[in-house]
Computed example of a mutant assay.
Amino acid sequence: MSRNKRKMIKKTLTHIGVYFSLFLFLLPFLWMVLASFKTQVQILDTSKLFEITANFSNYMSVFGEYAFLTFIWNSFIVGIGATFFGLLLGLPAAYSIARYKQEGLGLLILVARIVPGISFLIPWFIIFSKLNLIDTYTSLILSHMLVTMPFIIWVMIPFFEGLPLELEESARVDGCSIPMAFIRVMLPISGPGIVTSSILAFIFSWNNFMFSLILAGEKTKTLPIAIFNFLSYSEINWGGLMAASVIITAPVLIIALFAQRYIIAGLTGGSVKG
């Protein structure tokens, strides 16, 4: 067998493997979208698993009976707030760890991220209860920062380590202090990493369920908690559940599709130093 033929076979098998893996990952999402347009009876009928219908009653029920626009708004406020303050604190922390080789601090932040969030839930609930912050955006944003800030820091550390130190030194020669050199020089050229960490941090906050389950109330209920309402002891509203799942997945999917180039550039940007 010639070398070109072996190369062609290898390439064909690789494509088959990629497409098969893609099919397996997209199959649940495809079923979710199709099921969101079906009635309860049609969803439970396995012979009509991939039948296409045009029934919008589930979506009308989601927005009419369950006021999902309010939940979407709450999720956006919490996600944007947790991402913004995560960037505000996480970017200087990541630069400090990268610039001064503070491995201990970096490890401490990593441990805080690895520890199950439920370990913080009871102390937070007690503290926020004493401060009358239960069912407020403040408590949700602060709790979601436990997810967003460590992630931003650990994405940006290798990115800052890949930037030439001479850039900061040149800025200091021109009269900038270290903080000003960071703001005026380092941050503007760190765009791909900042965009990547922001998008992924927002997605993690958007999908967070546990913190919102305990700290949110009727005024600040987010989408993952709202979806939980479709589950009851005696019945599952599959049509409404699938429509709500499409609604919560669509914004994240759209953001990922349009920003995938920046995500790839940001995640690989710190892999090359100098």
Results as ranks from 00 to 15, higher is better:
251 P>G: 01
248 I>W: 11
50 F>D: 00
40 Q>V: 09
82 A>L: 01
18 V>W: 04
264 I>V: 14
111 V>T: 12
98 A>N: 04
85 F>M: 12
152 I>N: 06
235 E>G: 11
165 L>V: 10
259 A>P: 14
124 W>H: 09
160 F>D: 02
242 M>Q: 15
102 Q>H: 10
178 I>L: 09
230 F>Q: 02
132 N>H: 05
199 I>W: 12
7 K>F: 13
31 W>S: 10
114 I>N: 02
2 S>L: 08
249 T>R: 11
8 M>V: 15
223 L>V: 07
104 G>T: 11
135 D>F: 14
65 E>S: 14
109 I>Q: 06
85 F>E: 02
170 S>W: 03
186 M>N: 00
161 E>M: 14
258 F>W: 12
214 I>L: 15
173 V>K: 13
127 I>H: 10
195 V>E: 00
58 N>F: 04
23 F>S: 09
181 A>Q: 00
170 S>A: 14
88 L>T: 08
158 P>I: 01
112 A>T: 11
150 P>H: 08
176 C>I: 01
156 M>C: 13
103 E>W: 12
151 F>H: 01
184 R>M: 08
271 S>I: 06
211 F>G: 10
224 P>G: 03
258 F>T: 03
272 V>W: 08
78 V>D: 01
41 V>E: 07
46 T>E: 09
76 F>H: 03
232 S>T: 15
210 M>V: 10
133 L>D: 04
249 T>I: 04
127 I>K: 05
266 G>Q: 01
151 F>W: 04
253 L>Q: 05
9 I>A: 15
192 P>Y: 05
79 G>H: 04
